[in-house]
Design a protein around this nucleic acid. Structure first.
Length: 444
DNA sequence: TCTCAGTCAATAGT
DNA sequence: ACTATTGACTGAGA
């Protein structure tokens, strides 16, 4: 068993025409049915059963640094060039749903920011790209899917069977499914623009609201607190991701690239898209307290963009996510409270005002019920927190990355890099401080 | 417990 | 039909 041995098999494995999907999807019961067309295997002997010599996880662990941005770029090209959809690609190659694929392709995170699990799709994409035959295969699959669909449709037309959602294969079955599905399906909550507005506003004042604030927010907006909590979680990470891509794009304007080295860190406040009239980008403070601290320096640091509201906004003082209210010094509940953060100054139209008004539409039903949870068998597994033995050379060729790692040079914009570095360290310290409870002195 | 990373899946947009 | 967006959920850390 020499390690070289395993690398060798690894190489072979990867070199095979077909991507080693599956590996072990473990977990989620409702998923394993994803195998491709489900109706007939074209000619692709997907290694769906048994295990291959190496699990994809191992591959990931041993993978050299990949250029996620470059990979997604190529994948996008290939998909569009060949008219292949994200759904098919995602389900057959990545084992992910269309939405996830879309997200991944549009906002890839830099390799270093990815967890082992998060790297998996990228390794799969890379492997997939390595063999041009894979495209053909996918196209074949698409054709077959279509054919099968047509067939099914015809037969059902002449055969009654009104049911049948027109989705490709994927019949459920799934063995012994108790089929509890008739249950109410919890209508998806859709936040109204005004509600989002209010939430964004609140976020700007306090990216990490205390439970109490959340509670208030929920009450005022007539939403469930869990919705508000989720919204903050989602919003924070979305913003973070937005920064990543900006970082990548800024760092590689021109050549594909790179990714990892922390480069420019410019950022806007939010992904914005709709009304984001706010873009308070620098709206740091609403209520009186005009920042206490004051990074005096930054003299030459760029100023124009208020970088990440999140970390920068208010970690310094007391920051810690500690149990004790810590961050939200804002007393909105108190005196003069009024509308709190969401009080949209002028346009009070927002939620707070008229709860009963159907307008809100969204949240509505306050009475949530016991909500039957689906039993979720804890698959766990993965594990394999191997310490990633590095084996670059062969693996690199294995993954066929021509450039990838190479781009770490950084002779792009020295100035920019410098600023970035500076900013980065600041951020770093902020984050650290935030998670630690120490007073630390702010001076950059 | 909280946050985050990753996803799913519904649904809005094209 | 396909893609993009986004609320919710799951599991891992601290």
């Amino acid at each position: 068993m020499s390690s070289s041995e395993s690398v060798k098999s690894l190489t072979e494995l990867v070199q095979q025409p077909c991507p080693p999907i599956e590996a072990s999807k473990d977990g989620k019961p409702p998923e394993p049915s994803d195998p491709p067309a489900s109706d007939s295997q074209p000619t692709t002997p997907l290694p769906l059963s048994g295990h291959s010599a190496l699990s994809i996880q191992e591959l990931v662990a041993m993978s050299p640094e990949l250029d996620t941005y470059g990979i997604t770029k190529r994948v996008k090209e290939v998909l569009t060039d060949n008219n292949l959809g994200q759904r098919l690609f995602g389900e057959t190659i990545l084992g992910l749903t269309q939405g996830s694929v879309s997200d991944l392709l549009a906002r890839p995170k830099p390799w270093h920011k990815l967890s082992l699990k998060g790297r998996e799709p990228f390794v799969r994409m890379q492997l997939w790209l390595n063999d041009p035959n894979n495209v053909e295969k996918l196209m074949d699959m698409k054709r077959m899917e279509k054919k099968a669909y047509m067939k099914r449709r015809h037969s059902s037309v002449s055969d009654s069977q009104p049911c049948e959602p027109p989705s490709v294969g994927t019949e459920y079955s799934q063995g012994a499914s108790p089929q509890p599905q008739h249950q109410l399906k919890k209508p998806r909550v859709v936040l109204a623009p005004e509600e989002k507005e209010a939430l964004k506003r609140a976020y700007q004042q306090k990216p990490y609201p205390s439970p109490k604030t959340i509670e208030d927010l929920a009450t005022q907006l007539n939403l469930k607190t869990s919705t508000v909590i989720n919204w903050f979680h989602n919003y924070r990470s979305r913003i973070r991701r937005e920064l990543f891509i900006e970082e990548i794009q800024a760092g590689s304007q021109g050549q594909a690239g790179a990714s990892d080295s922390p480069s420019a860190r410019s950022g806007r406040a939010a992904p914005s898209s709709e009304g984001d009239s706010c873009d308070g980008v620098e709206a740091t403070e609403g209520p009186g307290s005009a920042d206490t601290e004051e990074p005096k320096s930054q003299g030459e640091a760029e100023r124009e963009d208020a970088p990440r509201p999140a970390e920068q906004t208010e970690p310094p003082p007391s920051g810690t996510p500690g149990p004790d209210d810590a961050r939200d010094d804002d007393h909105e509940g108190g005196p003069a409270e009024g509308p709190g953060p969401l009080s949209s100054p002028a346009t009070a139209t927002a939620a707070p005002a008229a709860p009963e008004d159907a307008a809100t539409s969204a949240a509505a039903a306050p009475g949530e019920g016991p909500a039957a949870r689906s039993s979720a068998p804890p698959p766990s597994n993965s594990s394999s927190s191997s310490s990633a033995p590095r084996r670059p050379s062969s693996l690199q060729s294995l993954f066929g990355l021509p450039e990838a790692a190479g781009a770490r040079d950084s002779r792009d914009n020295p100035l920019r890099k410098k600023k970035a570095a500076n900013l980065n360290s600041i951020i770093h310290r902020l984050e650290k401080a935030a998670s630690r409870e120490e007073p630390i002195e702010w001076e950059f």
